[in-house]
């Protein structure tokens, strides 16, 4: 197969899901005629008709709220929230109902909420946020964030097939990266992957920061420092065995995400390692992320976001420790 972008891989995955199951519905703001502001749903309305792929009024709370009724009626809704920063009006529906409906009723809620997230696209306010920790903190939801076209295709298949609700975060800065994909390959929810093997320090990343972690590993190699990069893919559930196996080798870890560090998802990773792998550690675990400020205006985002230098510096400190 020709190399495809992550945007195209998600499009193909939606296409295959729509073709494979008449109960799959795709909807949201501008997803029909326009094919989405990122063109992720391009051509789907034409192929499957406007009863299965449709534009909604501008109303995130209702876009998610109707998923409950549709799911009760036997559908598998795959709504799109146009940008990370516009998921908040839907927060009540997600937290109070999507996450808890099964616990209340015993009825499954096979809902996959797609959300382009993260920064580094030079956007205006509310278009570059990383709200994943709000959702990983909510029981009843699964939360995933692929970083490659192949994983995006396969994880979306897993998410749509999952009887439980999944928040599917798409790293929009990586939408246009290309790769050959194998649509037969399965990626179950809850499995991390080692994106690059190494022995010195484990760098744990997901979604938009995987690329930076890999760049850092390449740069470190020139200084004879070996970084192992773990791409979590799934935040909730979290694949601790893969993380601990890596720490058996490296005994040092760095966690990298774009979200602010305070209260960020990295805190959960570090706490789990402290619980399950305390004896493996030979240095404190560094957390690298956005600052504890609102996402800044575009001109300053490169300074705000994690970068290769910050990872290398943390790796040096971890290796020099003790």
């Amino acid at each position: 197969m020709e190399p495809v972008t992550m945007a195209k891989a998600i499009n193909l995955s939606l296409r295959d899901a729509l073709a494979g199951d008449d109960d799959v519905l795709v909807f949201g703001e501008d997803v029909g005629t326009l094919g989405g502001v990122f063109r992720i749903t391009d051509g789907l309305q034409k192929a499957f008709g406007s009863d299965r792929v449709f534009d909604t009024p501008l109303a995130e709370s209702a876009i998610i709220g109707i998923c409950i009724g549709l799911a009760l009626r036997g559908f598998k809704p795959v709504p799109e929230i146009q940008f990370d920063g516009f998921i908040y009006p839907a927060f009540d529906q997600i937290v109070s109902h999507v996450a808890k409906y099964r616990n209340r009723t015993g009825v499954s809620m096979p809902i996959t909420i797609r959300v382009p997230f993260g920064g580094r696209i030079g956007a205006v306010e509310h278009h570059s946020e990383s709200p994943e920790a709000y959702f990983t903190h909510t029981a009843g939801l699964k939360v995933v964030a692929p970083s490659t076209p192949g994983d995006a295709y396969a994880l979306l298949q897993s998410a749509i097939a999952d009887p439980d609700p999944v928040i599917f975060f798409e790293p929009k800065a990586r939408y246009y990266l290309k790769e050959e994909i194998d649509t037969a390959k399965e990626v179950p929810i809850g499995q991390a992957r080692v994106a690059r093997g190494g022995s010195g320090v484990t760098v744990i990343a997901y979604g938009p920061t995987v690329g930076i972690a890999l760049d850092a590993a390449k740069a470190a190699e020139k200084e004879n420092i070996s970084l192992e990069v773990i791409d979590l893919r799934s935040l909730s559930p979290l694949d601790m065995p893969t993380i601990l196996a890596s720490l058996q080798k490296t005994h040092r870890a760095i966690v990298v995400h774009e979200a602010p560090v305070f209260g960020g998802f990295g805190g959960e990773i570090v706490a789990r390692i402290a619980d399950d792998g305390f004896d493996l550690l030979e240095a404190p675990i560094a957390r690298i992320g956005g600052m504890d400020t609102p996402y800044p205006p575009a001109r300053y985002e490169k300074l705000y976001l994690p970068d290769v230098d910050r990872i290398l510096e943390a790796a040096d400190l971890a290796l020099a420790y003790g």
Partner: peptide
């Protein structure tokens, strides 16, 4: 218009 969504589909 709301981006690509015409009035008739909005209300």
């Amino acid at each position: 218009w709301a981006i690509s969504v015409p009035l008739a589909k909005q209300t």
